[in-house]
Write a protein that binds this DNA or RNA. Structure first.
Lengths: 313, 313
DNA sequence: GCATACCTTTGACTCAGTCAGACATCTCCT
DNA sequence: AGGAGATGTCTGACTGAGTCAAAGGTATGC
């Protein structure tokens, strides 16, 4: 279960941070909390004590004492807030700014030496992963809707055929309750493709977003002569709404036409409404429809067909 | 600068974890440190106090007092370590085991409600990001070596057959340069298994660590009557050294014997040295060996065989 | 057998963080 | 205008997590 893994990560990161600020040498002569207050003050102006309390989640009394200490060390000055006389406006003195800078520097050094253990080439991956976590767990929900241009199409690399099987199996199980029979079918299709395929006539596309596969489609020869078959169209939930399905089907249609096929067919099921719209948009027409019992469900299979000579481009 | 970003992430995650164990309700009646000690005890046996100190980086006196408290609550028992009379061997009582389970459960709940704020579709990305961070930063620092007991074996769920294909394809490509032919072969094996299999005679095991698959093995019927075949043994690099391969093969041998097979065979390649040791340890003998060209390489295939009637248990 | 190092326990301590009460001031309601 | 209740700050009193040092027991090296 994913909960296990998140907990494992929490333990890991708690230990890591603990190891980082190794016996608080980092903050001397201040405590971690005091350092956080200083940091906060250094990174926003016109801060009231109440803001600090809210931002850092501190006890009011505790904060008051910390500010007392800072005032004693002449790191801050306290005045009455212009908006509300109950509030106290806190501002750093020059000495306070220097103290904050010193702490930041030490922290930089510590993080720097941690980062030095990561190969240069891997750092972008690390930062990307951190961004992902903040995006998903952070309150800043609005952040970074992926864009269609961020998705690149490529051929399959090692593990990608397996990825197709895995994601088809997992997604259709989650979304429609299909059983392992479907995953087995996908495995067979993929195995047949891997066994023999003429690259000029058969091809697989993987759609990649941020270095991760998020979609796929396959074009193979059909038994009927001059006919190509589109199979295994899949778009990950997180990449939906980017027109990616359209793009993948477009690739297949263009490829099939270039390869000299006269016709493109595909088999799908009526529960897949979104896919149907895409096929229709590309000029496919429904030629046959019949119920079947597969994958542990009662389904209605559909055969679709596109005449590649009829509509160019 | 990346240091800035890592620091930002550290602040973010520190706050997040702080918010998670919201005023320590999670651990009552224990403290975070006590909970960590309990966790450690619950996940390893034959622990000495000194081990705990080392593993968790605690002050000796502090730990001693924590153990006093646990002993008072009858969560643990302290005896003299068999190896060294200076050391104290600490072991959980039944009550202690229950307390640890309770804490784990609460922590699960807290993480679960955090996770609930993340859309289902995004969770795999979250976990992937966490895995990346652990992989990159876990290196030397405070990373805890996973333990054999943390790995659980289970049957395949949705996507797991695909996972087998994917990881076989990717790992053998990375480690031995094998091409897509191998991934296709694995896909075929998996497809055949999914197509028809009698659960009494054929089975797949998935090994899971922290909720993540890290290994697999398959047992299927061979053409030869009364013969079972072991296939697709795989252990992820991060789970190696835990005796997991041994455990998986042991499962297969026991299953095959129970299922009434008289013989267990397998085919492997001589480049897979670690696997060979495992097979030998379980009593397999090499019966044939011949060179072949497959997967883009010149290889030497090996047939191994185990007589299930010869050596019981 | 002596010196040294290691493991554990205990007493004494520090200090980060919490809680409750006092006092001031704001906002809202009548 | 006046009162009720909420909010902001400060202080005193306290809790309890974690550290330090000393002491006693036991291993290891010479």
């Amino acid at each position: 279960m994913s909960v296990q893994e998140v907990r494992a990560f929490n333990r890991f990161y708690t230990n890591l941070i603990g190891a980082l600020d190794y016996s608080r040498r980092l903050y001397t002569p201040y405590t971690l909390t005091e350092a956080r207050v200083l940091y906060e003050l250094a990174h926003s102006d016109g801060t009231d004590a109440a803001d600090l309390r809210g931002e850092l989640g501190l006890d009011a009394g505790y904060l008051s004492r910390i500010l007392n200490k800072f005032e004693g060390d002449e790191l801050i000055e306290r005045t009455v807030s212009p908006e509300d006389p109950r509030r106290r406006r806190v501002s750093l003195t020059e000495a306070g700014r220097q103290a904050a800078a010193l702490l930041a520097e030490r922290s930089d050094a510590a993080v720097g030496s941690l980062l030095a253990t990561v190969p240069e080439a891997e750092r972008p991956r690390l930062l990307e992963a951190m961004r992902t976590i903040r995006e998903l767990l952070g309150g800043t929900r609005s952040s970074r809707q992926p864009r269609a241009e961020d998705v690149v199409l490529r051929g399959p690399g090692p593990g990608d055929l397996g990825w197709i099987v895995q994601r088809n199996g997992a997604l259709y199980a989650a979304e429609f309750g299909w059983n392992a029979e479907y995953e087995g079918l996908v495995a067979r299709i993929v195995a047949d493709y891997a066994h023999t395929h003429d690259p000029a006539l058969e091809r697989v596309w993987i759609a990649e977003l941020d270095g991760q596969p998020v979609g796929c489609v396959m074009c193979v020869r059909d038994q009927a002569p001059g006919t190509a078959r589109l199979r295994l169209l899949l778009v990950e939930p997180r990449a939906r709404g980017l027109g990616l399905g359209d793009r993948l089907v477009g690739e297949v249609v263009a490829f099939a036409r270039d390869a000299g096929y006269r016709e493109l067919t595909l088999w799908t099921n009526d529960v897949l409404a979104a896919a149907r719209r895409i096929y229709r948009r590309h000029g496919f027409t429904l030629v046959d429809e019949k119920p079947h019992h597969s994958f542990g469900k009662d389904l209605v299979g559909q055969d679709w067909r596109l005449d590649l000579r009829a509509t160019p481009g």
